[in-house]
Amino acid sequence: MIVAAGEALIDLVPQDAGSPAGAGLSPLAPRLGGGPFNTAVALGRLGSPAAFCSRISYDAFGEALLARLRAADVDVSWVQRGAEPTTLAVASIAADGSADYSFYVDGTADRLFAAPARLPDGVRAMIFGTCSMVLEPGASAYEELMRRAAAEGVFTALDPNIRDGLIRDPDAYRARFKSWLPSVALLKLSEEDARWLGGTPEEWLASGPAAVVVTRGGEGLSVLTRACGEISVPGVPVDVVDTIGAGDTVNAALLHGLAARDALSADAVAELDAGAWTDVLRFAARAAAVTCSRAGAEPPYAAEVDA
């Protein structure tokens, strides 16, 4: 089982792409989202046994989030509940489909996540990231859980998915990010994240991960490992509606592909050859393209990626 740990929230997305959100120029449609939530849904839709570890509101949005997880066959037994409201993220979609966000996070349910006393039974891998690794007190709880999972031999993945509007002290966050790397087996981030963090894949690889994957939007993605060096694949051409959830879909596709090769360990990842990595990356590129072809975070099912 692969566990996605982190926030679930509601994206408020302009119905007219390219119109500024919140300016009264386009109605906002609620979409179920949050990086870890989207990753869990994508894993379930791809056919990987998956679970979600988070704290979700009892409000109507929270019930809808849980329903989406259950519909994707995601185990929700590790979801905590709270009376606080669901976090909201207002998206602004540019003409090229890229998205920027402003957040409403004060007093919301997911911020009060508490690390469980033990890891889920049967967990093979856990993935962390996005807002949940920034907003306290939940951020410290997720960090504790990630370090504990790594110490217990669980394959850990991290997608920082930087939302700089939430990060009050960038230098402190960058230092904290570096402190996580010895506990991370797979680091995945976008080239925009890489620029913001101010490091290089080579530096991060030397700090602990067995592999570092960098996504480059429509240009494709690459992986850097000690054994194979850098391997890149192109993006899959598609008519982009928006890019919401594309990176989260890549997360799920990478983990799904590694699981299919029985490579959910740092040692197994280190032993993958260039051909195997190329296949995994191409699968992730196809999956992300499907997500980009429709509005909001709507990850594909396995049959859609294979087609």
Rank of each mutant, 00 (worst) to 15 (best):
V3H: 11
A5W: 10
A17M: 14
S19I: 02
G22P: 14
V41N: 07
A51L: 00
S54G: 03
S54K: 14
R55D: 00
I56H: 08
F61T: 02
E63I: 07
A64P: 12
A64R: 15
R68Y: 06
D75I: 04
D75V: 00
V79Q: 09
Q80W: 08
T87Y: 13
A91W: 15
A94D: 11
A114E: 15
P116T: 06
R118V: 09
P120C: 05
L135I: 13
G138C: 05
A139S: 07
M146V: 04
E152K: 09
E152F: 03
V154H: 05
F155Q: 01
L166D: 03
P170E: 07
K178A: 09
S179M: 04
S179F: 11
K188E: 05
E192L: 10
R195I: 02
L197M: 04
P201L: 04
G208S: 05
V214T: 12
R216D: 00
G218E: 09
A227K: 15
I231S: 02
V233N: 04
P234C: 06
V236Y: 14
T243H: 10
I244R: 12
G247T: 05
A253H: 08
L254P: 12
H256Q: 06
H256C: 01
G257Y: 12
S265H: 14
D267L: 14
A274Y: 14
L281P: 09
G296S: 05
P300W: 08
V305H: 09
